[in-house]
Design a protein around this nucleic acid. Structure first.
Lengths: 246, 246
DNA sequence: ATGGACCGTTGATCCACGTCAACCACGAAA
DNA sequence: TTTCGTGGTTGACGTGGATCAACGGTCCAT
């Protein structure tokens, strides 16, 4: 994921209409005339270095963020120190929606690599989406999509076994890389085995073993964080044909 | 949960401003003058008998629903027949938000008892929330709250053990009954052990054993679906002091 | 290059929960 | 009343993944 854009004066001038992520991001599906009106929406860009927080649980909620470059994880810390990764986000995806309900962020957003986000003041978003119908609809769709995604994760955590979970994870990553113009079969994971494990409700050793097993079976080739999918059909078969459970 | 309302002419006339669920439902937090304007929003009420679907995965999305009486579960069916319950909903809570993103419902909503919902045409909601600021904000908060809730479930499924999960579930139910004016300590579950298990990512036998264990330890008294919480502190301690994992 | 911090892999062992099976309790229908 | 079906409980046993532990690779900073 080296989707950085050459830094020119044009790209520094914040403008959704000029951004190459329109088909992935908030403006997706909006009319051109409507997208032009978004240019006042993105107040600024913000760079976040690897391992740094975009926001933390407890921070007052003021803005949502669209990922312009890089990638993030979101997680929740339990009182006793346990961590649950609730999602991995890539370019064009939105962060911060959790904060609307209580006007306080309820999770942490941490950059997995040096990244950049577009800052969208929530008050401005509300205001503008009262006038621009397409924006209102798109924003609602973005939130709804997040709910549907979460249900998918609940299904994964609640009813799949370790290898099915990892297969589902890899297929999901592949599909999202593809949507961003990268290879469906070869990509670089930005998160550690431990983070994958936390997301999938598994220990890092189990994740590692499942990677090795997939490799032995010729489904993928693993070299640290670099993944090559050799048999996508085989991976899909894994999640449809359950080894029995639930 | 016998929260049925006497059927009078007044209650049949659909009116959020007259509804005793305002503090739980969509209008929560809106100004009185704003709430009056909602009366055009709720087109109709709809009664759903126990075990019947309010909507099914794949149905075209047209409306969201506010539960006026009764309770529901939502679930997702995997190709291979496995079921994952994604939530239990009580009076004042909203159903159908999953449908916005693809204009098609992505889960099933099934009544756990004879129930009644207010039907809110989505097109009308969009229209009205462009004019009534409080409605826009409230609707966004409702969606955001759902996202936060889902993160909570992911945490539960991803990093808690069986007894912690059940304790968290009971405390959550207690808290929601309390918010509805029922006893915090004594309530009637409307779902089966199997549905609880599906929601918590456990088998029904495990749920049953955990109930029995809690009873042996004097934390609760169980009689089928009737639950009495005897030691709420003890239950809370269970989820804070983890038996080690993750 | 060299030491050290991470990160990942792999093996041996353990145990929480799933599986299988028998039985019981309750409510609805006959 | 009896019967039947569904839902709940409990026991015996098996296993998937956690735990504990050792070791190897990679990337820094020096």
């Amino acid at each position: 994921m080296k989707a950085t854009v050459p830094i020119t004066v044009a790209s520094l001038k914040v403008a959704c209409s000029q951004c190459n992520l329109v088909e992935l991001c908030l403006p997706f599906g909006m009319a051109e005339s409507e997208i032009d009106r978004l240019d006042e929406l993105v107040g600024a860009r913000r760079k976040i270095k690897r391992q740094q927080n975009l926001y933390r649980a407890g921070d007052p909620f003021e803005a949502i963020y669209a990922i312009r470059a890089g990638s993030f994880k979101t997680d929740v810390l339990l009182e006793d120190g346990r961590e649950q990764v609730t999602g991995f986000q890539m370019t064009g995806e939105m962060l911060g929606l959790d904060g609307i309900s209580t006007e306080t962020h309820s999770c942490n957003a941490i950059a997995l690599e040096d990244s950049e986000v577009c800052v969208i003041a929530y008050s401005k978003l509300e205001e503008l989406s009262r006038v621009v119908e397409g924006l209102q609809l798109q924003f609602h769709k973005v939130m709804s999509r997040e709910i549907v995604r979460d249900h998918g994760v609940m299904t994964l955590l609640g009813s799949m076994r370790a290898e099915e979970r990892l297969a589902a994870f890899l297929l999901n990553m592949s599909q999202r890389f593809t949507a961003r113009g990268f290879s469906p079969a070869e990509f670089h994971l930005r998160m550690t085995r431990e983070e994958i494990g936390s997301y999938l409700g598994l220990k890092l050793e189990t994740v590692s073993r499942a990677f090795s097993k997939f490799q032995d079976e010729g489904l993928i080739a693993v070299q640290q964080k670099h993944i090559r999918i050799l048999d996508i059909i085989g991976l899909k078969r894994l999640i449809q044909h359950p080894s029995p459970r639930s």
